Simulated scan of single mutants.
Amino acid sequence: MSETFIDRLDRYKEYAGLNDNQITIKSGLTVGIINSARKRGSSLSGENIEKILRAFKDINARWLLTGEGEMIQNDGAFAASNSNNDSLTIYLGKENKELKVKNEELNREIGKLEGQIIELKKRVLVEDVAKCVIASGSDLAVENT
Rank of each mutant, 00 (worst) to 15 (best):
A77C: 01
N74A: 04
G67V: 05
N84F: 09
N85K: 12
G69T: 07
N82K: 01
S81Q: 04
G69C: 09
S87E: 11
N84L: 11
G67R: 02
G93V: 07
S83T: 15
G69L: 12
K94T: 08
I72Q: 02
Y91N: 06
D86V: 03
E68M: 03
N84A: 08
N74M: 13
N85S: 14
G69A: 11
N96F: 06
E70R: 07
G67N: 04
N84K: 07
E95W: 02
A77P: 00
N74L: 11
N82I: 09
A80R: 10
D75M: 09
N82V: 14
G67Q: 04
T89Y: 03
F78S: 08
L92V: 04
G69I: 07
T66G: 13
E70G: 05
I72K: 03
Y91T: 13
L88R: 11
G76F: 14
S87T: 15
N84C: 02
G67T: 06
T89G: 02
E70A: 11
L88P: 00
G93N: 15
S83Y: 01
S87N: 09
A80W: 08
A80V: 11
A79R: 15
E95N: 00
G67K: 04
L88H: 08
Q73V: 09
D86T: 10
E68W: 04
A77E: 15
L92E: 14
A79P: 00
G67C: 04
D75Q: 09
L88W: 10
A79T: 13
I90P: 01
I90H: 09
N85R: 03
S87Y: 10
Q73L: 13
I72V: 15
G69V: 08
I90A: 05
D86I: 03
A79D: 00
K94C: 00
E68Y: 02
S81H: 03
G69E: 12
S83D: 04
Y91R: 15
A77V: 15
I72T: 04
G93I: 01
G67Y: 02
T89D: 14
A77S: 12
N96H: 10
N96M: 09
T66P: 06
I90K: 05
T89M: 11
N84P: 02
L88Q: 14
Y91V: 13
A77K: 14
N85M: 13
N84W: 06
E95R: 15
L88A: 11
S87L: 15
S87F: 13
T66N: 10
L92W: 12
A80P: 00
A80T: 05
Q73S: 07
E95P: 00
E95T: 11
Y91G: 04
F78W: 12
G76K: 10
G93F: 01
S83A: 00
I90V: 11
I90W: 00
A80L: 14
S87H: 02
N85H: 07
S81I: 03
E68C: 03
G69S: 03
T89R: 06
